[in-house]
């Protein structure tokens, strides 16, 4: 399955959430790959703790491949290359976890027919090898988003399932932006339809992921003074109404990740060790990522009978 991670703005936790989803799927035994299509600022290597390719690689990455400068993109075995102290010992029964880094000086470029064909070949190849192919797209209606829409509309990819995760923060501006990004006149849905996607099918393959969500009912926020607590509840309810009105409500949501200091200050993978041993991260955060990883292929969560 192809999973495209998109967002209208930066700072939505798109990369860190996607990397955590990939990590938890691999822990559960799936073969997973992560494609850093974040043209302009490749960050996945930092999250996976692969310092040798921090900020992208000099050449031979995904950008070089799509522009025809490399006949296949560089791939890195995360279990073997990471310097993360926990990940270095690959757990028994885990699947492959492979990172395809972007080029350091990638940047944007136009979608030509050649790069579409290379995209088709790449996705077909990865689909044959991996259970989950996670593609981290750069923010906004970028070249990367256009390419993903174009390639998945092509008949060569029939039978290859694709899902879209749209990441946003749980704020008024972000809810509005995410809704416009998905359903607005220049949004993913209309862009997809213009390229030949079926409108209902594409809409059905889109879900939202909320990040840095502050829940007034759980500590420490539930322990706030009464006035602050009441204000937070009112705001949160207002946000829920806004989200529902804009098509970003519960039924369109795949999951939500709580506000987590570890993720705010250091984008990283959240492991059992962080939660149960060193206890730097909250158990809710770990559970949120595990839930997201599970729901990714759970047909119930996607309204498939």
């Amino acid at each position: 399955m192809l999973v495209f991670a998109a967002s209208d703005k930066g700072g939505t936790g798109r990369s860190v959430t996607s990397a955590n989803i990939a990590f938890h799927r691999a822990l559960a035994g799936d073969d997973v790959c992560y494609l850093d299509f974040d043209f302009g600022s490749p960050t996945a290597a930092a999250v996976f703790d692969v310092p040798s390719v921090m900020g992208g690689i000099v050449q031979g990455g995904l950008h070089s491949y799509l522009q025809g400068q490399a006949h296949e993109p560089v791939r890195l075995d995360v279990w073997a290359r990471t310097e993360h102290p926990v990940l270095r010992h690959r757990p028994a029964g885990s699947g492959n976890l492979v990172l395809f880094p972007g080029d350091r000086s990638g940047g944007e470029f136009a979608v030509g027919n050649d790069s579409v064909i290379r995209g088709i070949d790449l996705f077909l190849r990865l689909h044959s090898e991996f259970d989950v192919v996670l593609v981290d797209l750069s923010a906004g209606r970028s070249y990367a988003v256009d390419l993903a829409l174009e390639v998945t509309a092509r008949p060569e990819l029939h039978g290859v399932g694709a899902r879209w995760l749209i990441h946003h923060r749980w704020t008024r501006q972000h809810v509005i932006a995410a809704s416009g990004f998905a359903f607005g006149p220049r949004g993913i849905l209309s862009g997809g339809v213009a390229r030949g996607h079926d409108v209902e099918e594409l809409r059905g393959s889109m879900r939202f992921v909320r990040a840095a969500v502050l829940d007034p009912e759980t500590p420490p926020w539930s322990l706030a003074p009464p006035a602050q607590s009441a204000w937070m509840r009112t705001c949160d309810q207002g946000l829920h109404r806004l989200a529902a009105d804009r098509g970003v409500g519960y039924s369109a949501m795949l999951g939500s990740v709580p506000l987590e200091p570890v993720l705010q200050w250091r984008e990283q993978l959240i492991t059992d060790e962080d939660v149960f041993s060193s206890r730097v991260a909250g158990p809710e955060t770990l559970k949120a990522f595990q839930d997201l990883a599970g729901k990714l292929t759970d047909d119930d969560a996607w309204g498939i009978p």
Partner: peptide, 17 residues
């Protein structure tokens, strides 16, 4: 060959080239 539209892209299992 793999781009051929006669193929349904539903292999019985995942495997590497």
């Amino acid at each position: 060959v793999l781009r051929d539209r006669a193929l349904d892209n539903q292999p019985p299992f995942k495997s590497q080239v």
